[in-house]
């Protein structure tokens, strides 16, 4: 069990590393218009998807069950990285890259630093009462069932990809400086505020 938990992140890292190769080799080809999908593909994509989904859900479940905060952070890396892989599968390359850089690279490190700075011992455990666990499990299971019920039964406009969406950097750049200029600027101001606020709150008096 311990071996497995240690091996899982390593597997994920390897998956991330070889992901572009998968994408190009199989049924997605790069062209000037962005990534195009070849007509015959599907199998490898499905395989990739299931592997990703398994890692996402598996590490998610591991987070739920783990009692150790450092382990949770490591599992979270598995989740985040395979979500990034999913973005690649969804042809959102840029978002995938950003996910890896910002989340897996930045936020996670931040979390771990938070753990190290706030914990007397990084292995400290906080146990939860059994009935709380049960209540949470029941409510969440119900919630999941209801949501899945909706998701599966709803009639979405398009089940398959009739239109292939490219997501070149150019599109993002143009989008951010035209239609999304105001949110973009607002976001920059927000980041500034957060920077100041975080520095203010974490200051030494």
């Amino acid at each position: 069990m311990k071996l497995l938990t240690l091996a899982a992140p390593i597997i994920v890292v390897m998956l991330v590393a070889i992901a572009p190769a998968f994408a190009v080799d199989t049924d997605l080809t790069l062209s000037e218009q962005g990534i195009q999908r070849s007509a015959d593909g599907g199998l490898l994509e499905a395989l990739m998807f299931y592997v990703c989904a398994a890692v996402v859900l598996g590490s998610g479940l591991a987070i739920c069950l783990s009692k150790n905060i450092v382990r949770m952070a490591v599992y979270l890396f598995g989740t985040l990285a395979s979500v990034a892989l999913m973005y690649f599968l969804l042809l959102a390359n840029f978002i995938g890259v950003i996910q890896l850089i910002v989340y897996a690279g930045g936020t996670l490190i931040l979390l771990i630093f938070g753990v190290m700075l706030t914990s007397k011992s990084p292995w400290a455990k906080f146990d939860v009462k059994r009935n709380e666990l049960i209540a949470a499990g029941v409510v969440c299971a119900l919630f999941a069932c209801l949501l899945l019920f909706v998701v599966v039964n709803a009639e979405w406009p398009l089940e398959t990809d009739a239109v292939v969406v490219g997501s070149s950097m150019t599109q993002f750049g143009v989008g951010l400086l035209t239609n999304y200029l105001v949110p973009f600027e607002a976001m920059s101001v927000l980041l500034l505020v957060v920077m100041i606020g975080a520095a203010y709150m974490a200051r030494q008096e």
């Binding site: 996402v56 859900l57 998610g60 479940l61 987070i63 739920c64 949770m72 989740t79 979500v83 906080f126 146990d127 939860v128 709380e132 666990l133 949470a136 499990g137 409510v139 969440c140 919630f143 999941a144 949501l147 899945l148 998701v151």
Partner: peptide
């Protein structure tokens, strides 16, 4: 959906 719900579960059960 599953990831979302698991996130909520984590929020509830981690101290």
């Amino acid at each position: 959906t599953l990831l979302f719900v698991m996130g909520i579960f984590v929020m509830i059960t981690k101290r």
